[in-house]
Amino acid sequence: MTDIKDTAFATLDQQGRLLNAVLKSPTERPGRYGFRGELALKFAQQFADEKRPPEMTADQVIAMANAGEPAIAFIACYLHSFEYLKTLREVLDGLLSPTGKYFLFCNNIDLLSKYTVELDGITFQILPIDESTVYNELLELLYLEKSELKKASTAGKTDKVADAALKFDGKFDPITYEQGLERMGPVRNRNENRPV
């Protein structure tokens, strides 16, 4: 049974960054640990003993790490703004690998654009997100059939998505973080035009 303490998630867990977990347990593959939930990127200032929600989070996180490895092998998440990439990179400093697969779906990236951004030797796939979820967008990107995953457990689905993500070798336009800041649009209200 893989323990979180034996994985790259240990530091984030100790820092109290792994929030609202739908999955925070070993997956169905031996030696593998999965997390699905939110990752706190910036904590709100606390007064006395009141607990406040984080000021900044990476949402809809789907991630996987192997026991005994210093880096998280796969992460996909939603960022409210492309600008959060730098903060995410700082929070995960020392926990990412040049061979890892990291997919960031950003609210304010043009819907027709897909980029690759390298920060300190770590490559991030930057993708737009419309009104879908990170999970659905990933299935589409990785050519996974939703119907085939329907009966799998949350841990099993995470394994399947992680396996496909680790094989991903798509090539998107490489840009710098600074170019991304120049190109990003305003943050869209994702609840706009939705029926009440």
Rank of each mutant, 00 (worst) to 15 (best):
G170P: 06
A155S: 13
N189G: 12
D163Y: 01
I175L: 01
A162L: 10
A165C: 12
D173L: 04
K171C: 02
A164W: 02
V161C: 15
R183W: 04
A164F: 05
K167I: 10
A164G: 13
L181M: 15
G180I: 06
K160V: 07
D159G: 09
P174M: 00
K167A: 14
G180L: 05
T158D: 11
E182F: 04
P186S: 14
Q179H: 06
G156I: 04
G156R: 07
K157L: 07
P186H: 11
T158L: 14
E178R: 15
D163S: 09
Q179E: 14
N191Y: 13
A165W: 05
K157W: 03
G170S: 09
L181C: 12
F168E: 03
G180S: 12
M184L: 05
P186T: 11
F172L: 03
A164T: 08
K171M: 02
E182V: 14
K157P: 08
R183P: 02
P174G: 02
A155N: 04
A155Q: 07
M184W: 00
L181V: 13
L181P: 09
D159I: 07
G180D: 08
T158M: 05
R188W: 00
R188M: 02
V187Y: 00
K171E: 06
E178G: 12
R183M: 10
D173M: 03
D169H: 15
K160I: 06
K157R: 15
Y177V: 06
D163Q: 08
Q179G: 03
A164P: 13
I175P: 08
N189T: 11
D173Y: 02
G156H: 05
P174Q: 05
K171H: 07
M184K: 14
E178H: 10
E178N: 14
V161G: 13
L166S: 08
D163P: 02
G180R: 06
P174E: 05
R190W: 01
T176K: 07
G185M: 06
I175A: 01
A164C: 11
D163T: 07
R190A: 06
Y177N: 04
K167E: 15
G170W: 02
N191T: 11
T176N: 12
D159H: 08
Y177K: 10
V187W: 00
R190D: 02
